[in-house]
Amino acid sequence: MALFTRAPKPEPILGQNRAVAFFLAVLTWIIGLLFFFPLFWLVLNGFKEEAVASSSPTLIFDPTLDRFREVTETTNLLTFAEAFWNSFWIVLISTFIVMTLAIPAAYSLAIRPMRKWRDVLFFFISTKFLPIVGIIMPVWIIARDLNLLGTRTVLVILYTAMNLPLAVWMLRSFFAEVPKELVEASQIDGCSLLGQIRQVILPIVAPGLAATALLCVIFAWNEFFFALQLNNVGASTIPVWVNSQQKFQGQFLAGLSAASVLATLPVVLAGWVAQKRMIRGLALGAIK
């Protein structure tokens, strides 16, 4: 009977007049381009000569790759390659530990909730409310006494703690989307815990796991405060390296821009690829 009725078309909030629609589309495009403009300009500046970048803004210049070559070749205290590999390993290992700790926790919070599970979840989130200044002094002193200042280890430990609450929070919602009946059915059928996880749960939550891990990677890659305070020298990370490209004399804007592009690119590309999943993970994380 309902063979020929079409599903109701979603209704945009702001009117449906065609002229209005056109105007709004143009407006959205303009705002989008404006939001992106500072980054576009950053990339342009990275291809300029220092003297060109440090004068009145211009679109006309001879592009050059020299700045990229210079910033990756200069041998300061911290070279680009060192900072990159430090960041790479710190981010990779801390994200791995976060996921290893968060997956079982989120699993048991979501799939087989126990009494007071909201309290446990609230505890995890509340640790994010603990301002970092509340713990930075003891952390610094303990790290100093354990000879961990200036090592990658200290940042791995801290980034794991930093991302763990968010990961538990997001993952719980992805696990909660697994139909309970499916889990119970497999349980009654005598499916082992490992079998349950492998055959029933993992296929459903895999995209959520990827989105969560990616968000952890972004936050860890971009982190600056701990890296600056606890690991300011040889073993430090990309954000510290970028900041060190500021010079106190002479012109440095073009070089700094090239460095910024290199530092930002990996995370921006990853974010572009996974944007849809991340939206869902973040937003549904708390609502469901």
Partner: peptide
Amino acid sequence: TLLITPFLVMPVV
């Protein structure tokens, strides 16, 4: 995509 990019940019940058 243009609009979400600022969120991905490293705060220092």
